[in-house]
Nucleic acid binder design. Structure first.
Lengths: 254, 254
DNA sequence: GCATAAATTCAGAATAACTGAAGTTAAAAT
DNA sequence: ATTTTAACTTCAGTTATTCTGAATTTATGC
């Protein structure tokens, strides 16, 4: 850069800011008091800019701010391990987590509001890539002995969120067999009721085991019913390794 | 700004950074995870830039970072009040203070290293503007009674920094009259010696009064000797109101 | 699947930035 | 003090960048 170009830029900056920055009575020109203050601020600007450049240059693997969604059961069971694995293996990535129901999360991933989500697998949806994270058997849980017909006939059925992904699976298989149904939106609350003998339920085995007292009897659903927790991402996602990068973090042992 | 211009800037920025910032599968384009992180950094840059603009636009009166010098006696007596006045009446100004001897401060103001300085006035120097801040009588101080001839004959003369501005004034007037001379670089140390009767001295009356115990006898110098504390600034200084602005702060009551 | 609105691309125009020569000005040397 | 020297500024012309408007491609709604 030529000296004359520097001189013109100095003059131009003074004009733009409306402040005399240089005392040209000295050679080389010295900063005025105002110039010193502006210089300090300018250095702060450059520092912020070089921080920007630093993050964009030393970028490897998963990097950036990811927005992810989790269904409630996944946010309790999968999320903590996921975040620990990310902290360790993807230090340049940070996460904004939202909890919602499967349908809503599908919409939000599809619309680009979220980059990825962990939901209960349902029928394939166009534009979404699904990767199975966990395959979980559904079991009945009760404190009272007896086969399923007896339970359905004698105890209230504790039904988890019928509108949720897992809730719809449960509804399909229970059909109209329940003599009485109580709807709840909390796995922990349902299991507390089961533990006290208030009713029985059908839930993923890991969720039952999480809260069940020793008295609780688990009965596998006769039809081999299960649900898949899947990672959904947009198929048209620009960042090619977003899907595999996040999927890998779910497979890590912590 | 046209939409096409925005589009070109977006593409150009992605190329410069080497990062895909936008996911163009959406309309309008959405930020990628990396884009979100870069966006946060970019906002920090803009924030720093608007802070710069703010200081250069709301500028009134004394503003900026001023570098000032004080001779030791002035840094103790004038500086605190000056800084308090500045804090109150020139909130947009901040100060970097250096303490040095008058000659050195003259050079540093002349070379532009300092914007202004408070020194003991000497012969006028080309290129420096002088404004009198304080007119101070010089007095002899001693614990022992008797006229000056007796003091000079019987007690050591405590001589403040002979190389300093005030020191040269003192040297000129004392001449060779002292039977013994002790040189010191601290007014406080000199007055401590005077207080204990170790010797006598010749100093500005305010400096004597600052440390003298009641026993000390002050004798005005017969020739009406005095020193002026003056504010020096460069005559060719670009910032026109620097001199009057600083001078005014010295006149304020706090 | 088609229509519509929106983003991108391209070529030319406008703007901004830069270079080199000439003219000033501050510091150094006589 | 005056002259010399080196450095900064100004000016004119060139180069590079950015912007606009029309044509094209692309996502979304019906």
């Amino acid at each position: 850069m030529t000296l004359s170009a520097v001189s013109m830029q100095m003059k131009s900056l003074e004009g733009d800011l409306g402040v005399t920055l240089f005392d040209r009575a000295h050679r080389p020109p010295k900063l005025t008091p105002d110039g010193r203050r502006i210089c300090d601020h300018a250095e702060a600007v450059l520092k912020a800019e070089s921080a920007l450049l630093a993050t964009s240059q030393s970028r490897t693997g998963l990097s950036g701010i990811y927005r992810m969604g989790f269904v409630p059961t996944a946010s309790v069971r999968l999320l903590p391990d996921f975040l620990m694995a990310a902290e360790r293996d993807a230090p340049q990535a940070s996460f904004e987590i939202a909890t919602d129901l499967s349908d809503a999360l599908e919409d939000r991933v599809l619309s680009g509001d979220l980059d990825a989500a962990v939901i209960t697998a349902s029928s394939d949806q166009r534009g979404l890539q699904m990767d199975v994270l966990r395959h979980e058997a559904l079991s009945y849980a009760s404190c009272h002995p007896g086969n399923l017909e007896v339970l359905f006939a004698t105890l209230p059925f504790l039904h988890f969120l019928p509108k949720s992904g897992i809730g719809k699976l449960i509804a399909n298989h229970v059909g109209g067999r329940a003599s009485r149904t109580i709807t709840l939106d909390s796995v922990e609350a349902i299991m507390e009721c089961v533990n006290r003998g208030i009713g029985f339920t059908l839930l993923p085995a890991p969720d039952i085991e999480r809260f069940a007292v020793p008295d609780v009897i688990k009965t596998a659903e006769p039809g081999g019913l299960s649900r898949d927790l899947v990672l959904i991402t947009r198929t048209t996602s620009q960042t090619s390794d977003l899907r595999t990068g996040i999927y890998t973090l779910f497979q890590k042992e912590v």
